[in-house]
């Protein structure tokens, strides 16, 4: 299945794009998607312990399942205000 990935701030800089599509196996979780990305962009690995994740614009957990067409977002530590 295919998922749409959103990356923000420094994560977007590392990957060189804020939106991309990737193929992941059936039964994939948010973590599967992250590992797919981190194998492609090694500098993302530094963020593994500090990122937040969202599926279809709702905060989620790394072990949440993803479905075909889902938007999966990875967020570095936030700094709004």
């Amino acid at each position: 299945m295919r998922v749409n990935i959103r990356l923000f701030a420094r994560l977007r800089d590392i990957a060189g794009a804020g939106e991309m599509e990737r193929q992941v196996p059936d039964g994939a979780t948010v973590r599967t998607v992250w590992e797919t990305l981190a194998s492609e962009f090694a500098d993302l690995k530094d963020y593994e312990v500090s990122i937040s994740t969202a599926v279809n614009a709702e905060y989620s957990r790394m072990d949440a399942p993803v479905a075909d067409g889902d938007e999966v977002a990875f967020l570095p530590p936030v700094s709004g205000g």
């Binding site: 420094r10 967020l75 570095p76």
Partner: peptide, 19 residues
């Protein structure tokens, strides 16, 4: 989910606060 990209004299940096 908001981020500051700070441009300062001599460079720029993404500010990262709370997870």
């Amino acid at each position: 989910p908001v981020w500051k990209h700070e441009f300062f004299e001599g460079g720029d940096v993404w500010i990262e606060g709370a997870t």
